[in-house]
Write a protein that binds this DNA or RNA. Structure first.
Lengths: 225, 225
DNA sequence: GGCTAAGTGTAAATTAGCCGACATTTTGCT
DNA sequence: AGCAAAATGTCGGCTAATTTACACTTAGCC
């Protein structure tokens, strides 16, 4: 990996726009730059030195396994997102892994300690990062608030709305979303069973609210969702 | 309010331990200092200048009202907690208010902009603050992960365990918690109906797992929860 | 002290949605 | 092309938990 290319990979992220070339180069001692393709599983080996990851391309999901062996989707990471121990607090006991959803992904990573040093030397970045983490928290709070005490249908609608807002291609009230999730994934995200999700999606399709297939979801009229 | 007293109110918080007297004094120029008693409702008037709050004494709950008029408990704030727009990003459309749960509370507040300035001048604080927010985020994630895909009983048990850990007075396996929540509050926190919560609590009482009254909850043997 | 409102106790009817058990379709692989 | 595996579609029974409805108890206030 050429230093310059690494530089651009980071520079590209809005969080790092305030940094100078030399500052980014500092981070770029980055060991990690990784490519992976659909279905691959990436472990954040707990023994390893704590890192922060930046997804440059594609989509992945973070999955946790509880004591009973149940899979729970903890997060969907999209292009441009930072992930990993954003808390800057390493956690030893997490049984988490990432699974690649899109055709292929590119991930860069850097050491948490390097990042911390950089934050200390660069107050503006520190503030941006603080806001970034805060925003992420707000998102989580909101999405959970929606999950709970609403029924499955409402949750699905809300999820689709969010998804459309984040990634949809809009033309008027018609929104097209690239669909890299299976119905099972969607079910897990909105915390319902696969069957219920399937049923609701079909119901929506028969009401002409949307058009579902494995490649894309076309929402006929976003205002009706 | 004497400057020095204000100073100590802030100084006392672990987040601000890294700051010098003069730095804290800067924040103190501000500032709201408010007392309120049980049942009182505190609005974060949206028109007002954005603030960050620090709860010095007592307990409050943050309640949100959705479009249908339903109340949802968003957060329980305990002594020493920072709250408000931790994201440092003011949000115009939140229908939130705080309700005092304990007999009385003391709250100080300072302007978000002042806090931001301080963060810029003090990267170490920024880093601590980010870690603090991150930790809070992790807590939320965990507690919500517990909320979902578990039944009401499990959620109640988990909630009691958490509560005991955070605020309980331990003597061996017996834990006493000062109870400033109603059964309705508890129900809302664990996302169930009041009746179900009542039923479960009574069931636990009849099994001698705990002892519930409006003043305190005594958990007979925390290891059995 | 006595009244009112808030908090708690209990029980039956109703329902959402989970679960198991399949059939069918699509995809990827050799 | 042909096969296996993954994804999707569909159904009915089952169960936890919400809802509705009402009685009782406690706390706070004049």
């Amino acid at each position: 990996m050429y230093e310059d290319l690494k530089y651009w990979y980071l520079r590209d992220h809005k969080l790092f726009r305030t940094l100078s070339y030399s500052q980014i180069k500092q981070l770029c001692i980055i060991t990690g730059f990784k490519k992976a393709s659909k279905g691959e599983i990436i472990y954040f080996s707990t023994s390893d030195i704590p890192r922060i990851f930046l997804l440059k391309k594609g989509n992945i999901k973070i999955v946790a396994i509880d004591d009973d062996g149940n899979e729970t989707i903890k997060d969907i990471i999209q292009k441009g997102d930072l992930f990993g121990e954003l808390t800057l607090e390493s956690d030893n006991k997490n049984e988490e892994y990432a699974k690649v959803l899109s055709d292929d992904v590119a991930i860069c990573s850097f050491l948490m300690s390097d990042f911390e040093d950089l934050l200390l030397k660069n107050p503006t970045l520190a503030l941006s990062y603080t806001k970034f983490v805060g925003l992420k928290m707000k998102r989580i709070k909101n999405s959970y608030a929606n999950l709970i005490s609403k029924d499955a249908k409402t949750r699905l609608y809300q999820f689709l709305k969010d998804w459309a807002e984040q990634e949809g291609i809009w033309s008027g009230n018609l929104v097209t979303i690239e669909n890299y999730l299976t119905q099972n994934d969607i079910a897990q995200i909105i915390c319902t069973s696969r069957q219920t999700a399937t049923q609701l999606l079909n119901e929506m399709e028969s009401k002409n609210l949307l058009n579902y297939n494995r490649k894309e979801i076309i929402i006929t009229d976003i205002t009706k969702i």
